[in-house]
């Protein structure tokens, strides 16, 4: 990234730069289970998250900024998710969509389910629900965009991540600091 990971950008440049980044999130949907259907519903005309600048046409993880893990992650699948996440270029963001991806959901006592995607990759926004409504995904995307607007790219590239946002628990706080 050249200078960007060395020095803090001046405030006006940072504002414009982050404004551009937050409205062109190329999204890679890791559709695993039921929640993938609600993700598709969020991308079609009724809810349409493309109007928020989320572009669900990333050809692969190497072209993506945002990874949406939607669905149950099993122990057999976990290495694939880890690998796809590592293929994404920095700065990268992860939305954990649905209870299964957050913590295992209804399969909390199953022998073959990974209890949360945060065990293998860092998560930025948790969207709760089983499955969450498409509106909840839009809410999560907006919370993430507020965070992108205010963050320091230098810190991000250096891997200094802020604490994750949990929708419902501390989303209003996240919006407050974004306003």
């Amino acid at each position: 990234m050249g200078l960007m990971d060395q020095v803090e950008l001046p405030q006006p440049v940072k504002y414009v730069f982050n404004w551009g980044r937050k409205y062109s999130l190329w999204c890679f949907n890791f559709g695993l289970a039921c929640c993938a259907i609600e993700f598709i519903a969020a991308s079609t005309s009724r809810h349409d998250f493309i109007r928020h600048g989320v572009i669900p046409f990333a050809h692969g993880p190497r072209q993506a900024d945002l990874l949406v893990v939607s669905g149950t992650l099993t122990d057999k699948m976990a290495p694939a998710v880890k690998r796809l996440y590592e293929e994404m270029p920095e700065p990268k963001y992860v939305i954990s969509f649905g209870s299964c991806a957050n913590c295992g959901g209804p399969y909390w006592d199953s022998y073959s389910v990974t209890k949360g995607v945060d065990q293998i990759i860092p998560v930025d926004v948790y969207v709760p629900g089983c499955p969450p409504r498409p509106e909840a995904l839009l809410d999560g995307i907006i919370a993430l965009q507020h965070r992108i607007q205010n963050e320091s790219l230098k810190d991000r590239i250096a891997g200094r991540r802020q604490d994750p946002i949990t929708l419902g628990a501390d989303a209003p706080l996240a919006l407050e600091e974004g306003a």
Partner: peptide, 9 residues
């Protein structure tokens, strides 16, 4: 890859 152990649960 999506085995969640329904029968046991």
């Amino acid at each position: 890859y999506m085995h969640r152990g329904f029968e046991k649960l």
